[in-house]
Design a protein around this nucleic acid. Structure first.
Length: 808
RNA sequence: GCGGCUGUGGCGGAACUGGCAGACGCAUCAGACUCAAAAUCUGACGCUGGUGACAGCGUGUGGGUUCGAGUCCCACCAGCCGCACCA
């Protein structure tokens, strides 16, 4: 055994050996653990040190579970449809599938450098027809269930990507992918009725071991609110307007009403003399971008000339039109209570509409003069006077129901999912349009509908897919009547393939079904899902939705796919010129490649350093220089073994304590997924073990072997090498994760802190659980000089920890 | 604007249920080895005062609870993230 650490030959040797003899063999007797990474987009840029972080983390957990006796599913695949490959194809005039193939080969080569225990036999690629056949099949099931439907409506349109966006992809009015300001375009598109699952998507969150932040983001996105619908009659008209409100308690304070510019039936309400003004206002609103409508908070509006009757007090209130009311939320009509709603207050102030307070704060003497949104006592509200507002809020809907003027109802912010895209590189939507039969789904036996080759991948301005120009593909026969028909030319969004890929891994070679019930039962749901937080309301919401749909189809036996979620923090790079940290990207030119680091320090060092840089869920600036620390550590371990492994002594009591404490601390921290403290723990205990070894002139074999096994998930190559150096012929991963003996953790003596008036004035060694009086007496003697002649008025003793004397 | 998270040495960060703040590592400095450098090893390393043992201060700021607060409570400041007129 050499006296230095030759990581190059060690890593090469064991990587080849594990290739031949995988360490995570199929074994149906063992309990199972499914550890999943968010599968990557095979980008041409390749992996940087930020990608490693999540992959190393999940691999450490996977190897830890292997050592704990689990059979682990740790697969990898490619989310390969989507715009980057397509844009690359347009620019370089190569087929996207060729670019994907090259990129997959390159990224796969880089992934091998991590030495993760991926089961490559289970690899999936969303762009393989054998994969997207099932993506299309799932769409057909949704169509059959009435969950996929076509609708024409104003949609988010990204002028740069030249394609529609789902609401989730257009938050803040900008394109999630390219950052362009989104415009509205009226198009007929395929939609998925995710709103039908709003309640279940909300309720299911309670059962998940996910970061609270992500659960909150999803629940805010779903945005459930409780309230009432209330009917108002339009004065001198047959028309009626139904509003949605979460504050029915304030109904008596409603002094006007506002309709969205896109309100259906607006024409029938507007009076002749106001028609021109209203039409102009509505036209102007329609040309405003959603960003303008969102950021320009100055209220605008126009009077319709019409009045409605407040159903509880008969008062006539003016009906206005204003773009601060959204057409697609609630009923598109709002009852306005300026005394108790900030927006209505602003509007009323601007247009000099009456403000009537109907709630007085509990502690107030007088009625509020400004907008007040809190709880209080009802006033100016007829029969409701004297009620508590927030109690009235709950009681009023039922009262309105009995009076026949309203009803209790709930609303959601969640909208249906715009599912079609006007681009080439995606799954064709398996639908045929027949003049005679209308919309006809492609029969399941005709799947997959293969994406045809096309001359130009370029998207169009009109919202038409490039596929529309391939006559030979578009023109087909109707499966229903046999007559001429046309294929749907839109493709699915990139999210389609990623919404169910975790199901395919469990049975990826199955050509009869997307996965067998048996395999699904065996592996699903995923035990640990590791990935970035950027998918909090995109992929993660969609995947939950798909799972629930498939559950309702009876093809999966669970309705939540991911039991535990872990979001690893992003690795950023600090830029001294701007003083800020930025995400690593090729265009910024701040990418740190793992290749140079593995060449210089080895895979084991980089794996360890990736997790040592900080808490794994926290973002972190990359700094190469710290890797020296872990490299030195591994060399220290190597030298320690080289020096002592061949002259082991019998275990000593002190070493037994250290060994058991090491096992306990590492295991506890491992379970908490605080890998940075696991590694500092390794370093701390290794230092202690080495010191003790030097002191007692040797170390026992069990301590050495325990160290190797505990290190193995982090630094598998050096661990395997040391394990074999210890004389073993089987892999270290055949071993069992060690358990500690609590009785060995009890020490005879312990050092306690001594305080005078809460200030540290010394320490003292005592026997474990020594009698209180004995401790205090000895402590007082020790502290005599610190009392400065004052007398002790109080003694506080926390057993085995601290003694504090209060003197006066 | 609303909501959430975070704030500890020169730096990354430790500190389980309130109990010796700064573990572990990086950087720096000193020493050893060397003709020299690198590597390695040993030691120092929060700030202030003192030759010194020691003393005072110290976890964003200001209050509070407690024998005792990085940790709990209140108010504020700064940074990051999410949502953005959802009635």
């Amino acid at each position: 055994m050499e006296n230095h650490y030759d990581f190059q030959s060690i890593e090469k040797k064991w990587r080849a050996e594990w290739e031949k003899n995988p360490i995570n063999k199929e074994d149906d007797v063992k309990p199972r653990y499914y550890c999943l990474d968010m599968f990557p987009y095979p980008s041409g840029v390749g992996l940087h040190v930020g990608h490693w972080r999540g992959y190393v983390l999940s691999d450490v957990v996977s190897r830890y579970k292997v050592l704990q006796g689990y059979q682990v599913l740790h697969p990898m695949g490619w989310d390969a449809f989507g715009l980057p490959a397509e844009n690359f194809a347009i620019k370089n005039n190569v087929h996207p599938s060729v670019a994907v193939k090259n990129n997959v080969a390159n990224v796969k080569r880089q992934l091998h450098e991590i030495s993760a225990i991926y089961d490559w036999d289970r690899e999936v690629n969303t762009t393989d027809p054998s994969y997207y056949k099932w993506t299309q099949w799932i769409f057909l099931q949704m169509y059959k269930m009435g969950l996929a439907y076509e609708k024409e409506m104003p949609l988010n349109w990204c002028p740069k990507c030249k394609c529609v966006l789902a609401n989730e992809e257009a938050t803040g009015g900008v394109c999630e992918r390219c950052g362009s300001v989104v415009t509205k375009k009226n198009l007929r598109q395929w939609m998925l009725k995710i709103t039908a699952y709003a309640d279940r998507l909300l309720e299911g969150l309670d059962r998940l071991d996910w970061p609270e932040k992500v659960k909150k983001m999803q629940s805010d996105w779903i945005g459930k609110s409780y309230g009432a619908e209330i009917n108002f009659k339009v004065v001198d008209s047959e028309e009626a307007i139904t509003v949605y409100t979460t504050r029915p308690d304030t109904l008596h304070g409603c002094t006007f009403m506002v309709l969205a510019p896109e309100y259906k039936g607006l024409d029938k309400i507007v009076t002749a003399d106001q028609k021109e003004a209203v039409d102009k206002y509505c036209f102007d609103a329609s040309t405003k971008s959603s960003v303008d409508r969102m950021t320009n908070k100055e209220k605008t509006g126009v009077f319709t000339g019409a009045y409605a009757t407040n159903p509880v007090n008969g008062k006539q209130i003016p009906i206005w039109v204003a773009d601060y009311v959204l057409a697609d939320y609630g009923t598109g009509a709002v009852m306005c209570v300026p005394a108790h709603d900030e927006r209505d207050y602003e509007f009323a102030t601007k247009f000099q509409l009456p403000i009537i307070p109907v709630i007085r704060p509990f502690d107030a003497e007088e009625d509020p003069t400004e907008c007040y949104t809190g709880d209080g006592i009802m006033i100016n509200s007829g029969d409701w006077n004297g009620m508590k507002a927030f109690e009235a809020k709950k009681a009023v809907p039922d009262m309105l129901d009995k009076m026949g003027i309203g009803k209790k109802t709930v609303n959601y912010k969640l909208r249906d999912w715009v599912f079609s895209r006007q681009r080439y590189w995606g799954e064709p939507i398996p639908i045929i349009h027949c003049e005679k039969c209308g919309v006809v789904p492609v029969p399941e036996e005709d799947l997959p509908v293969v994406l045809p080759d096309v001359e130009s991948y370029k998207p169009t301005e009109t919202g038409e897919s490039p596929l529309a120009h391939i006559d030979s593909w578009v023109n087909t026969t109707c499966p229903c009547c046999g007559g001429p028909a046309k294929r749907e030319t839109n493709t699915m969004p990139q999210w389609a393939g990623s919404s169910w890929y975790f199901l395919r891994y469990v049975d990826n070679h199955n050509d009869k079904e997307f996965a067998s019930q048996e395999a699904l039962k065996k592996w699903m749901p995923v035990d640990l899902y590791v990935g970035g937080i950027e998918h909090a309301v995109l992929h993660l919401l969609y995947a939950r939705f798909y799972t629930k749909v498939l559950y309702d189809c009876g093809v999966v036996p669970f309705d939540e796919p991911f039991k535990k979620l872990f979001n690893q923090g992003m690795i950023t790079k600090f830029d001294p010129t701007t003083g800020k940290s930025a995400k690593m990207s090729k265009s910024v030119g701040n990418v740190v490649s793992p290749d140079d680091l593995t060449r210089k320090y080895g895979c084991d060092s980089l794996r360890m350093y990736e997790l040592f840089v900080g808490p794994p869920e926290v973002d972190c600036d990359w700094d190469d220089s710290g890797i020296d620390g872990v490299y030195r550590y591994l060399n220290k371990v190597w030298k320690f073994f080289a020096t002592y492994k061949d002259q082991c002594i019998a275990p000593t009591k002190e070493m037994e304590y250290l060994r058991n404490k090491l096992i306990k601390d590492i295991t506890d921290r491992m379970e908490a997924l605080t890998m940075n403290t696991v590694i500092s723990g390794f370093m701390e205990y290794t230092n202690k073990i080495i010191d003790l070894t030097k002191k007692q002139g040797g170390v026992d074999r069990q301590t050495l072997e325990t160290m190797i096994i505990l290190l193995a998930p982090y630094t598998p190559h050096i661990a395997e090498e040391l394990w074999h150096e210890m004389g073993h012929t089987a892999s270290v991963f055949e071993e069992k994760w060690p358990e500690y003996d609590p009785s060995k953790l009890v020490q005879d003596t312990v050092e306690i802190a001594l305080q005078v008036n809460g200030k540290l004035r010394g320490t003292m060694e005592i026997a474990m659980n020594e009698d209180k009086d004995s401790v205090l007496t000895r402590a007082k003697e020790l502290l005599e000089s610190k009392f400065e002649g004052k007398s002790v008025v109080k003694e506080i003793y926390v057993p085995n920890k601290i003694a504090n004397f209060i003197v006066k």
